[in-house]
């Protein structure tokens, strides 16, 4: 008798017979889920919340594209005044103005939604009371304004 393969009564030992686990269920997600209204819920109020979410995510890419443009602008500084001035002259082109308008809208949308989010998720306690979200959002806007004015004064000149 083979001691390795039998129990005390000599019966063959096998793995406990459990039914195989059913395959995990994945709810199919269509690539256009952010366009569809199927995911509407009371918290999103049946609005285009998912579309706005996608736009917010992509607005950061638009901002990055502007920064590539801006980096080229600064890089022109080391190529001499003639090259730099020619680049600054292109800022007047309607296509470049439109690009800046889209970039500005994206940056503002990204920043505004950030402060709104921040007011909800960040809990600030002062003593025994909690600072209301409204005031945190407002504080964010004030901080944004102060930082913007400071940079503007340095960039444009006093």
């Amino acid at each position: 008798m083979d001691a390795q393969s039998g129990d005390a009564l000599g019966r063959p030992v096998s793995a406990p017979s459990r039914p195989a686990a059913p395959p995990a269920f994945h709810r199919p997600v269509r690539p256009d889920w952010w366009l569809s209204g199927r995911y509407r819920s009371p918290s999103t109020q049946g609005t285009r919340a998912y579309l706005l979410f996608m736009l917010r995510e992509l607005s950061s890419v638009v901002v990055a594209l502007f920064l590539v443009f801006y980096l080229v602008q600064i890089a022109r500084l080391s190529s001499g005044q003639g090259v730099y001035d020619a680049f600054v002259a292109t800022l007047r082109s309607p296509v470049v103005v439109l690009f800046h308008l889209i970039a500005l809208a994206s940056a503002i949308y990204h920043a505004v939604t950030w402060w709104q989010l921040n007011g909800v998720v960040m809990v600030v306690r002062l003593g025994s009371s909690t600072v209301p979200p409204r005031q945190l959002v407002l504080g964010g806007y004030v901080l944004w304004a102060i930082a913007s004015i400071a940079v503007c004064l340095i960039l444009v000149g006093f």
Binding site: S60, V63, F66, L67, H100, A107, A111, C152
Partner: peptide, 9 residues
């Protein structure tokens, strides 16, 4: 990104 708005403007 909060400071980019000034530069774009």
């Amino acid at each position: 990104a909060l400071l980019v708005t000034v530069h774009i403007s």
